[in-house]
């Protein structure tokens, strides 16, 4: 547990020192959403109709932005090997890095969401649903993405490859997230959607660090 906290703290400190990372992610998030009024026209009812989907897709893409560097930097300067040599299981280290990733991307996205909901004139019924689905959805995104980030260590053209690997796996989270918000807007019960999203998160919580640690082990072996 101590290792876990110290790794999270270390990653957060690194993110702070390099600064900008979270700011860039949020800026990308806002810009990506901002393109849609230009693309489809500024009519409020059209924007309201697509708001949930657009915000979700933009959140998904921006949480993928910093994924490439999740393990890459530590892999290149060799500190990943030191982390792997620690007495605790590598899964804990991976989990800690995922947590730090979520704190530096998922959380800022969540904070920026109300602003975008206003921009996209999201109906107020859907607002809390959007916030809540993002709150339980973005950790799942970080978890699933970590597998991809671990798999591409040491590969050529990592960034493009990462999106090819990770985006298909993101689809279930996106589907349930958006349909929960749509359901809330049209006054349907959304408990089932939220339960499934929570289920995805609970399933990803042990599986993704495990698979990610496996991928890192084989990356360090050779």
């Amino acid at each position: 547990m101590n290792t876990f906290i110290s790794i999270v703290r270390r990653d957060l400190q690194l993110a702070m020192r390099q600064g900008m990372d979270s700011v860039m992610v949020v800026a990308f998030f806002i810009l990506a959403v901002m393109l849609f009024p230009f693309g489809v026209g500024p009519e409020a009812n059209i924007l309201a109709r697509i708001a949930a989907g657009v915000i979700w897709v933009a959140a998904l893409l921006s949480s993928m932005l910093s994924l490439e560097r999740l393990f890459q930097i530590d892999y290149e300067d060799g500190s990943l090997e030191l982390l792997a040599l620690q007495p605790c299981a590598l899964e804990i280290t991976v989990m800690a890095k995922i947590t730090a990733h979520w704190l530096t991307t998922g959380l800022p996205l969540l904070i920026a969401t109300p602003l975008l909901a206003v921009f996209m004139s999201l109906p107020s019924d859907g607002f809390w649903a959007l916030l809540f689905t993002l709150a339980i959805g973005t950790p799942s995104l970080s978890l699933i993405g970590a597998i991809g980030a671990a798999l591409i260590l040491g590969s050529r053209r990592g960034g493009v490859l990462l999106s090819l690997l990770v985006l298909p796996l993101y689809i279930p989270v996106l589907i349930f997230g958006v349909s929960a918000v749509d359901g809330a807007i049209s006054g349907l019960p959304i408990k089932a959607h939220l339960l499934i999203m929570a289920g995805l998160l609970v399933a990803a919580l042990p599986l993704c660090p495990w698979a990610g640690a496996g991928a890192i082990k084989q990356a360090l072996e050779t």
């Binding site: 591409i152 590969s155 690997l165």
Partner: peptide
């Protein structure tokens, strides 16, 4: 995607 094919087949097996 890897210069070392052994890496490639291990990583893709996990995927």
């Amino acid at each position: 995607a890897f210069d070392d094919p052994a890496r490639g087949s291990k990583a893709s097996s996990i995927l």
